[in-house]
Design a protein around this nucleic acid. Structure first.
Lengths: 187, 187
DNA sequence: TCCACTGTACCGAACGATTGGTATATTGGA
DNA sequence: TCCAATATACCAATCGTTCGGTACAGTGGA
């Protein structure tokens, strides 16, 4: 399936990038138009409900990418440690080494929450579940596994914020390096 | 100085609240006007450069509050553990138990960064320094103290994001409970 | 083979509303 | 009488959205 032609999919990719760069409120239709190369009215062809539809499509695409980068490595074959390292690598790719923001963060700010109700919450919960599964597999009892998963998600989100503030990918990379150990040993 | 009357200070307080609730981009002048109870002309009387000045004033006020809630307990009298617990309590108050967002997060998104250049970075660095000092006092060597401080800031920012996404203050409270131990023992 | 018809993809121009911001009064207390 | 503070009215620019329309690739009946 070469999928030689899918203008819409390309648009979604560009829109997601723009939302992650600017946040929901600052990503104006003018910006989104420029980012996609499509006229404003063309955007309404693909996304009849406007900005709201674009946000939903971007979020859905982000979920796909997270599944690819996190869920699949995490639940795939091989020993746990190797899979966790693959997961860290996947996260690094998805977050562009720490330069890109997380939609869980951005979509809980300003008008975004009203436009995409419950979306960020669902994304966060999915991440928590995935990491809790890994922690359980590492031998931690259920309750403790949940705590570890929570810390993992917190560290990912927090490291992204700090990296953005300091304009350095170092905190994010540093965090990724200790992620496997956190889930394996709980430290 | 009783400062019985200071309309401007009250306005700054309300403005800061609004920025923390809505983010910089979604906090329109109409919203800020409603939040302060001041007409547009009054806002421009107090903040001649408009929204930018308001953002700077809000950030300056936030810094004051963080100094009060974090820096003073951290560098005050008493044994370290007690001071760290006071710091955690101060953080809980400043972040309204986890319901309020952090300006370090908000002010690195969208137009905010252009309006208040370097501000979020400076705030983050000040926090890092304060926590590193505490970790050193706890006996950790300089380099390790820096790592611990970074983790502390990451966990604070990350817990705020997660709490906002899940619409529950639990992750933030949970994180505050382990903050003193993190700085004391590095775990 | 022709051609009327349909659906998809896109665009420029404009919509009413709201944005951040300004100019000009008016008010009221010291 | 001053002058800080507030009100009223307005501005250009931009917001998200919609309209009317073109270009073109199929499709299906005659």
């Amino acid at each position: 399936m070469p999928a030689i032609k899918s203008s819409r999919a390309e648009a979604v990719e560009a829109i997601m990038r723009e939302f992650r760069n600017s946040g929901y409120d600052a990503a104006s239709l003018a910006r989104l138009s420029a980012a996609t190369g499509l006229g404003k009215s063309s955007l309404y062809h693909y996304f009849p409900n406007g900005k709201e539809d674009m946000a939903k499509a971007a979020a859905a695409r982000a979920v796909e990418l997270v599944v690819e980068a996190v869920f699949e490595p995490l639940t795939g074959a091989g020993n746990l440690k190797a899979r966790l390292q693959k997961t860290a690598a996947g996260l690094s790719k998805f977050y562009n080494g720490g330069k890109a923001s997380c939609l869980v963060d951005l979509f809980t700010i300003g008008e975004a929450e009203a436009a995409t109700p419950g979306l960020a919450k669902a994304m966060a919960e999915a991440l928590l579940r995935a990491f809790a599964g890994a922690a359980e597999e590492a031998g931690h009892p259920k309750k403790q596994a949940k705590d570890i998963a929570e810390r993992a998600v917190i560290e990912i989100e927090g490291a992204l914020v700090l990296s953005r503030a300091l304009r350095s990918t170092r905190p994010f990379q540093h965090m990724l390096a200790r992620l496997p150990a956190l889930l394996l040993t709980g430290a």
